[in-house]
Design a protein around this nucleic acid. Sequence first.
DNA 1: GCCAACGTTGGC
DNA 2: GCCAACGTTGGC
Length: 156
Amino acid sequence: MSYWLMKSEPDEFSIDDLARAPDKSTPWFGVRNYQARNYMRDAMRVGDGVLFYHSSCEVPGIAGLARVASGPYPDETQFDRKSKYFDPKSTREAPRWLLVDVELVRKTRLLGLEELRACADLADMATLRRGNRLSITPVTAGEWKIVTKLLARDGR
DNA sequence: GCCAACGTTGGC
DNA sequence: GCCAACGTTGGC
């Protein structure tokens, strides 16, 4: 079993949106970066742990725990002319963008970026490294353990 | 809104 | 295959 951090802008799709979704699950639509796609297409397995991260918002940070809930399949928004994720170069025959379903495990307190950075043991975490903009990054088992421990702690 | 850092595109 | 120009991400 592997672990992942997946970023979403709460204005677009927040942890509360996930909690309200049917089966508390959503296709992870809109990824248009090859490396992030490859993680979903090639590396993720059903049951993998996911840190649901709120980005580009007032208080960025981890907002909940989730899990990978499907194998890879095509992102419908790439075929939708009206979607901002429409990709004219992609076809049904050879879809360029694949995604997985992500299912809520539980909403957590907001574990802010500031608090993550303050934790020395998380300094090597991919998403915290300088200049990293990838919306999906691997999380090590050790990092997962530390983060879930921090989540169990009071937010102050 | 700024801007550093990175990814993608396309001419050559 | 190089690399300049451009676009995007995302914290601040």
